[in-house]
């Protein structure tokens, strides 16, 4: 324990030096950073921070990937998973955001939450400054109603909302995904706050609320069980039969199709990405990214993931940086709306 803390202190000193260097070299906000890896990165253990408690989706992915990263990294250094939960994931990401930019600490997170928090002004993180290492997986969001509800498609819900003035949405708080997608659908809604998706789904089934939106993978079991009906997929349709929920998603329209706004869903769906602190040198990012891509295509990992009903959908560092930037641009167009909903 003491050794870790001492090396952390050492690392932060290094980060400070690197950070100032970074600031001097790239003042325009572009995260690219020159640096040298002559020391032969990586030479010591890497911490992969999970900003949620053990047992969840991000945690499962992190624990799945960690041993494979070790296998594919130079020097086979250990990759240690550490849970730093709190504030809906912000605690862990904030810690990594301020950690040494030397590739010793990385985080698994999602851009959507970070951008929403940045717009709401509840975080000091500038998501565009994170150095993307790669995307691990993606899940669309699903707009669902109870199986017993009278609405067979989203048009019926829109009709209903037109007569009653609004729909009741069971949600886990104001997030970009519910504000933006419902605005795009022209649905006026009133939120009923719940602790999580489980309580929200129960509320739908009881008929206390009308509609809800959560990630497709988290709702899949309830959809399969026939308790809730999916009306719209926010994001991209699963394209291969190997993807979880491929069958159930057939014939369900996407948000882009319903609203005719191309690319909106891609900015709202949940991308699980791995990122390093701002100012991490390019050569470090490259090494980590190569190892991550090799891990995610490792047949052994793919087999283990499939056993857990997961499918890696890798995107490299540059592509992931573009995903983050697309999320920032798209959601910022709705910044006023998000702030307005939050202050209601």
């Amino acid at each position: 324990m003491r050794r870790t803390r001492m090396s952390l202190a050492l690392a932060s000193a290094l980060a400070l030096a690197l950070g100032t260097q970074a600031a001097a070299q790239s003042p325009a906000g572009s995260p690219a950073v020159d640096g040298d890896c002559e020391g032969g990165y990586p030479t010591r253990d890497i911490t992969l921070v999970v900003p949620y408690s053990p047992g969840g989706g991000f945690d499962t992915w992190a624990r799945l990937i960690a041993p494979f990263l070790t296998r594919h990294l130079p020097n086979q250094v250990n990759v240690l998973v550490e849970n730093r939960s709190g504030a809906g994931g912000l605690v862990g990401v904030t810690e990594v955001y301020g950690a040494a930019a030397d590739g010793s600490t990385i985080v698994i997170t999602e851009p959507g939450i970070l951008v929403t928090s940045a717009i709401a002004g509840t975080t000091i993180i500038d998501p565009a400054q994170l150095r993307a290492i790669g995307r691990v997986a993606v899940s669309p969001e699903a707009i669902v109603v109870a199986a017993g509800a009278p609405w067979q498609d989203i048009a019926a819900v829109q009709e209903h909302a037109a007569t009653t003035g609004f729909v009741r949405m069971a949600n886990g708080g104001i997030a970009a995904v519910n504000v933006v997608s419902f605005d795009a659908l022209g649905l006026n809604w009133e939120g009923v706050f719940h602790e999580g998706s489980s309580e929200s789904i129960l509320s739908l089934i009881r008929g206390d609320t009308d509609i809800s939106i959560f990630t497709y993978t988290s709702l899949l079991d309830n959809i399969k069980a026939g308790d809730v009906r999916m009306l719209v997929l926010v994001g991209t349709q699963p394209t291969s039969p190997e993807q979880p929920g491929f069958e159930e998603a057939q014939g369900v329209p996407t948000l882009d199709e319903v609203t005719g706004q191309e690319g909106l869903g891609a900015a709202l769906e949940q991308h699980r990405i791995i990122a390093a602190p701002p100012g991490t040198p390019d050569c470090v990012v490259d090494i980590l990214s190569d190892a991550l891509m090799a891990s995610l295509t490792d047949p052994e990992l793919v087999a283990q993931a499939r056993a857990a009903d997961l499918l890696p959908v890798p995107v490299d560092a540059a592509g992931t940086q573009a995903i983050i930037e697309n999320t920032v641009t798209t959601l910022n167009e709705y910044a006023d709306l998000i702030r307005e909903k939050l202050s209601e």
Binding site: G56, T60, E199, D221, N222, K224, A225, A308
Partner: peptide, 27 residues
């Protein structure tokens, strides 16, 4: 009844069952 955990322990148990390929919920 619904595959919805009644508490943290049940949530973890459910993850465990899913990882083992046991369907949870009404089925």
């Amino acid at each position: 009844a619904f595959g919805i955990p009644g508490g943290t322990m049940m949530a973890v148990l459910m993850v465990g069952l899913i990882l083992h390929g046991v369907p949870v919920g009404p089925s």
